[in-house]
Simulated assay, not measured.
Amino acid sequence: MILLAFLILSAICCSYALVRGGSPERLTAGVFLAGTFASIMISIHAPPPPEGFQSAIFLVDLAMLIALGAIMLFARRYWPMAITACQLLAVMGHVIRLLDPQIVPVLYWISTAFWAVPQMLFLAAATARHRSRLRRHGVDPAWSRRPAADHAG
Score class of each variant (00 low, 15 high):
residue 1 M to G: 11
residue 1 M to N: 14
residue 2 I to V: 14
residue 3 L to G: 15
residue 3 L to M: 14
residue 4 L to P: 03
residue 4 L to T: 13
residue 4 L to S: 15
residue 6 F to E: 12
residue 9 L to G: 11
residue 12 I to D: 13
residue 12 I to G: 01
residue 13 C to E: 13
residue 13 C to M: 06
residue 14 C to L: 14
residue 14 C to W: 12
residue 16 Y to I: 10
residue 17 A to E: 09
residue 20 R to C: 12
residue 21 G to A: 09
residue 24 P to D: 06
residue 24 P to F: 12
residue 24 P to R: 15
residue 25 E to S: 11
residue 26 R to M: 08
residue 29 A to C: 10
residue 29 A to L: 07
residue 31 V to D: 15
residue 32 F to G: 07
residue 32 F to S: 07
residue 33 L to C: 11
residue 33 L to R: 06
residue 33 L to F: 07
residue 34 A to M: 15
residue 36 T to C: 12
residue 38 A to E: 12
residue 40 I to C: 02
residue 40 I to T: 08
residue 40 I to S: 00
residue 41 M to Q: 14
residue 43 S to E: 05
residue 45 H to E: 08
residue 48 P to N: 08
residue 48 P to D: 03
residue 48 P to M: 10
residue 49 P to S: 10
residue 50 P to S: 08
residue 51 E to H: 14
residue 51 E to W: 11
residue 52 G to D: 10
residue 52 G to R: 11
residue 53 F to T: 00
residue 55 S to D: 04
residue 57 I to E: 10
residue 58 F to D: 07
residue 60 V to E: 01
residue 63 A to K: 03
residue 64 M to W: 03
residue 64 M to G: 11
residue 65 L to T: 01
residue 67 A to S: 05
residue 67 A to R: 04
residue 71 I to Q: 04
residue 71 I to G: 03
residue 72 M to S: 14
residue 72 M to D: 09
residue 72 M to T: 12
residue 73 L to T: 07
residue 73 L to R: 10
residue 76 R to F: 04
residue 76 R to A: 15
residue 77 R to E: 04
residue 77 R to A: 05
residue 79 W to P: 15
residue 80 P to H: 05
residue 82 A to P: 03
residue 85 A to E: 00
residue 86 C to S: 06
residue 86 C to R: 00
residue 87 Q to W: 00
residue 89 L to T: 06
residue 91 V to P: 01
residue 93 G to V: 12
residue 94 H to P: 00
residue 94 H to R: 00
residue 100 D to H: 11
residue 103 I to C: 06
residue 104 V to L: 08
residue 105 P to V: 11
residue 105 P to D: 08
residue 106 V to R: 15
residue 107 L to M: 13
residue 107 L to R: 14
residue 108 Y to Q: 01
residue 110 I to Y: 13
residue 111 S to D: 06
residue 112 T to H: 04
residue 114 F to Y: 02
residue 116 A to N: 03
residue 116 A to Y: 02
residue 120 M to R: 01
residue 120 M to F: 04
residue 121 L to R: 02
residue 123 L to A: 03
residue 124 A to M: 07
residue 124 A to G: 02
residue 124 A to E: 05
residue 125 A to K: 01
residue 126 A to I: 03
residue 129 R to N: 11
residue 130 H to F: 10
residue 130 H to I: 09
residue 131 R to Y: 04
residue 131 R to K: 11
residue 132 S to W: 11
residue 132 S to L: 13
residue 132 S to M: 12
residue 133 R to C: 11
residue 133 R to T: 07
residue 134 L to T: 05
residue 134 L to M: 10
residue 137 H to F: 04
residue 137 H to K: 08
residue 139 V to D: 10
residue 139 V to Q: 13
residue 140 D to H: 06
residue 143 W to R: 01
residue 145 R to V: 13
residue 146 R to A: 02
residue 146 R to Y: 13
residue 148 A to H: 09
residue 149 A to F: 09
residue 149 A to V: 02
residue 151 H to Q: 15
residue 152 A to V: 07
residue 152 A to H: 10
residue 153 G to I: 05
